[in-house]
Write a protein that binds this DNA or RNA. Structure first.
Lengths: 232, 232
DNA sequence: AGCTTGAATAAGTCATACCTTTGGGTCTAC
DNA sequence: GTAGACCCAAAGGTATGACTTATTCAAGCT
């Protein structure tokens, strides 16, 4: 999944540095300096910078240098950008944005899943709902998180829409992030687990409206909890 | 916006070739061949390939070559990938996916806009609604398209969510695409224009539910028309 | 048959030389 | 003194040759 080799390493330094605001918009980097600072050759620096350019995070210009572009220009849907932002200073803003995106997408995905899911998809969702119930009761947060991620990924995939399906890693990152940063109750709420069961049942039964409604309740609830936590 | 220089040119060949299926998944390219075929140096080839790698469209491996990855792996949200797919063979599938995405996102964006839009945003939306009405009546398809794109972009931006806002180019590409490929009525439908006015009015009046409802009608209608056209 | 080993191959990296664009300073003409 | 043309230096852009490293495949050994 990651970019390999030395350019990957360089990217793993530059990306987070820019995303975190350590290198704010307008900062000018010079390729030669990057070579020296990281002890790599021109080739490596250029490839890393090219990738950042393709993410619209920097703009190299002759006679000037490599300029950091304002946040508004970045490819906010790029998985790497999302990860870097989640790890850095504006984690809150990123979580909020992603929360709204989930509110828009996941209910629609659930409705589509109720129409399009294959038998295997439905079976998997049923099984995951059971796992969620069990791990929640056992207060096994780690397993619960893993199954929660798998559940939402399964719904997105079952929707049959490739673009929805591709949001699974992003949603996974959000769920992981809020657990890591203690933005969640110590123990999964029973009513949230109940809602997941409802989603699974509605999709299995082929009831789009019910699936959409239950999923909407889940993601709206998550967004509200997030807002409540972040504004404090 | 584009990637500059020779790597950009190379990318403009390779990207569409892969997206169109001309180079199907599993195809193995060799860097040396690409150099010869395009008359460029290793440097250029490597940078272009790196970018494709960051889009997850290819995977370079030592002793093997540069392998084209299956469609399912691609970064389907990358603007370049979207454009290449829209230009190529699976334009239909891409339009369908984007249609569903619009159905999910734009109503939510309209609702948010009714809450968060600035006074300037509201003014702009009002003005654009007027323009849409006028150009529709004049059957000036070109102007209508431009204002339609601007209208949807304005709603997305007014939502205050950066991720929604970044979908403006994508939505613009969809609208342009369906006009270009005659997937639209010769003359904008009066009832569609009416709905745009309703969206603008609801956002101006700060009525989220009304804005969301009207926008949903618009995008659902667009998706249904698309489906009807493509299945024929 | 299974394991080891080695050689061939293709990408990865480095160093260097040179090209091209462009920003800014200077010099001139008015 | 200001406006314009002009030139130079600085920075990225490209090309190339030498070398490194990982990986596959097959030959050969046990």
């Amino acid at each position: 999944m990651e970019i390999q080799g030395l350019p990957g390493r360089l990217l793993a330094h530059l990306g987070p540095a820019i995303a975190s605001g350590e290198l704010p918009a307008g900062t000018v980097l010079r390729a030669e300096e990057l070579e020296a600072q990281h002890g790599v050759s021109r080739t490596v620096v250029r490839e890393a910078v090219r990738i950042l350019e393709s993410m619209r995070m920097v703009e190299p210009r002759r006679r000037v240098g490599i300029t950091v572009r304002p946040r508004g220009d970045w490819d906010v849907f790029d998985p790497l950008v999302i990860r870097w932002r989640l790890a850095g200073a504006d984690r809150s803003a990123q979580l909020r944005s992603l929360g709204s995106l989930r509110v828009a997408v996941e209910p629609a995905a659930a409705a589509l899943a109720a129409r399009n899911a294959s038998d295997d998809d439905r079976r998997e969702l049923g099984a995951l709902a059971v796992e969620l119930t069990v791990t929640a009761r056992a207060a096994d947060l780690e397993s619960f998180l893993a199954h929660d991620i798998a559940f939402h990924a399964a719904v997105l995939r079952a929707s049959g829409n490739e673009m929805f399906a591709h949001l699974k890693d992003t949603v996974g990152a959000v769920l992981t992030g809020r657990t890591e940063h203690r933005l969640m109750p110590h123990r999964p709420r029973e009513y949230a687990v109940q809602l997941h069961r409802e989603v699974a049942e509605a999709i299995c039964a082929g009831e789009p409206e019910a699936a959409e409604r239950a999923m909407r309740t889940i993601v709206v609830g998550a967004l509200e909890e997030l807002d409540a936590t972040l504004t404090n």
